[in-house]
Amino acid sequence: MALNLIKLSVGTTSVEDLVAWQGSARAKGPDGLPRHVTRMWPRRAEELLDGGSIYWVIQGLVQCRQRILRLDEVIGSDGIRRCAIVLDSALTRTATARKRPFQGWRYLPPGDTPPDLSRSRESDDSLPPELSSALADIGVI
């Protein structure tokens, strides 16, 4: 089973905001794929690249994931080596799950990942974050 990452999507209020951000030139690499640049290089890279995804926490809830395609080395203008986590451009919505704030990214074992939403539910209107949070708290979604 592949290992996953979990990361806060800072500054976004919805999955649609994340899609819009990743569509911007600033979030794309030279190959046109979205990427997230981080200071830390994952030590468990092989496990991540064996089908792993990054699960995005938006407004305190895990709401979607993206498959990790590769890890690229990026050297900033300051000369510091960083890791660009290159992502599939397709986002998969997941069942919402509450997640407390944390810094950076964390490993997320396969057994702790929320399930993907069925294709028929992916086009459902998003619930307001407060309602999703309340429903996740009581285990309804």
Rank of each mutant, 00 (worst) to 15 (best):
K28H: 05
P129M: 01
R39E: 00
E47P: 15
D88S: 12
P129T: 11
V74Q: 03
G32M: 02
P115K: 06
I80C: 01
A97T: 15
T94V: 14
Y107M: 02
S14F: 01
L69T: 10
R119Q: 13
R39G: 12
K7N: 05
D72K: 09
I58G: 15
E73C: 04
S118T: 11
I138V: 15
I141E: 13
I141F: 03
I75K: 00
I141K: 12
R67F: 09
G32K: 08
D124A: 08
V86S: 10
D78M: 00
R70V: 02
S24F: 00
G111W: 00
T92E: 08
L71N: 07
D88R: 08
R81S: 04
V15D: 06
R43V: 07
A2Q: 06
Q63R: 15
G76P: 02
P128I: 11
Q22G: 07
A84C: 03
T113F: 02
W21D: 10
I6V: 14
L61T: 13
K7Y: 04
S132F: 06
K28A: 00
C83D: 04
S9P: 04
S89F: 02
V10L: 02
P128A: 13
H36G: 06
G23D: 12
E73T: 12
I141P: 15
R100Q: 09
R93F: 13
A27H: 10
R65V: 07
N4C: 02
T113C: 10
L91S: 07
D50R: 14
W105Y: 14
L33V: 08
S89I: 04
S123P: 06
V57I: 10
R98N: 11
S89L: 03
D124E: 11
P128R: 10
P115F: 02
Y107T: 11
Y107N: 14
T96L: 01
G11S: 07
T13L: 06
E46M: 01
V19A: 06
T113M: 01
Q59F: 03
R39L: 00
G51N: 06
